[in-house]
Amino acid sequence: MLLWAVLVGLSFPAVGLMSELPPLALTSLRFAIACAGLWWLARRAPGFVPPWRVLPLYALMGLCLAGFFGAMFWAAHHATALSMATLYVSVPLLAFLLGLGFRVEQPGWRLPAILALGASGALGLAFAESLGEAGGLHLGIGEAVFFLGCVSSALYPVLSKWGLAKGWLPASAAVRTFWSLGLGGVLIGLLALVVEPTGRLASMTGGDLLLLVYLGLFSSALTFWLMQRATAALTPGAVTAYGYLVPFVSMLLLFIQAPGRIGWVWLPGSVLVLTAIALLLRNGRPPAPTS
Rank of each mutant, 00 (worst) to 15 (best):
L187V: 14
E143W: 12
T177Q: 03
S180W: 00
A134V: 13
L131R: 15
C150S: 09
L164T: 06
A116Y: 04
L125T: 10
A113P: 04
G142H: 09
L191R: 09
G124Q: 12
S160R: 04
E143N: 07
L181E: 03
G135C: 08
L111T: 08
V158P: 08
W179S: 11
E129H: 15
H138I: 00
A116F: 08
E129L: 00
V186I: 15
L117T: 11
G185I: 04
E133N: 14
I141C: 00
L131H: 14
A173E: 05
I188Q: 07
L148H: 02
G149Y: 04
V186D: 01
L139G: 02
L125V: 10
A128E: 01
P157Q: 01
L190V: 13
A174H: 11
L181R: 03
G121K: 12
S172R: 10
A173V: 03
G135E: 11
G163Y: 08
P157M: 04
L131P: 00
P112D: 10
K166A: 10
L125I: 15
A171I: 01
L190F: 14
I141G: 12
W168F: 10
G135H: 11
W179P: 12
P157S: 09
S172Q: 07
E143R: 06
L117Y: 03
A144M: 13
L187Y: 00
F127W: 15
L181D: 02
A116V: 11
L164Q: 14
L191H: 03
E143G: 04
L123E: 02
A165K: 01
L183T: 10
L115W: 00
L159M: 09
W162V: 09
L193D: 06
L115D: 05
A116P: 06
E133M: 12
S120W: 04
L123T: 01
L131F: 01
A122E: 04
E143H: 05
A113D: 07
K161A: 11
A154S: 13
A122C: 14
Y156I: 06
L139Y: 13
E133R: 15
S172N: 07
L131G: 14
H138E: 14
W162T: 12
V186R: 01
G140P: 07
S172A: 12
L123P: 02
L164C: 06
L169M: 11
W162P: 03
F178V: 06
F147D: 05
A119G: 13
W162G: 07
V145A: 13
L191F: 02
F127E: 14
F146A: 01
L123R: 03
S120L: 15
S160I: 11
F147A: 04
F146Q: 03
G132N: 13
L137P: 06
G121Y: 08
G136I: 04
L148M: 12
G142A: 08
A113I: 02
T177C: 14
P170V: 08
A119D: 00
G163P: 08
A116H: 06
G185H: 08
S152L: 08
V151A: 12
A171E: 14
S130M: 05
R176Y: 00
I114R: 08
E129A: 13
L183P: 09
L191W: 12
L125A: 08
W168V: 04
W179L: 10
G149A: 10
K161S: 12
G118T: 10
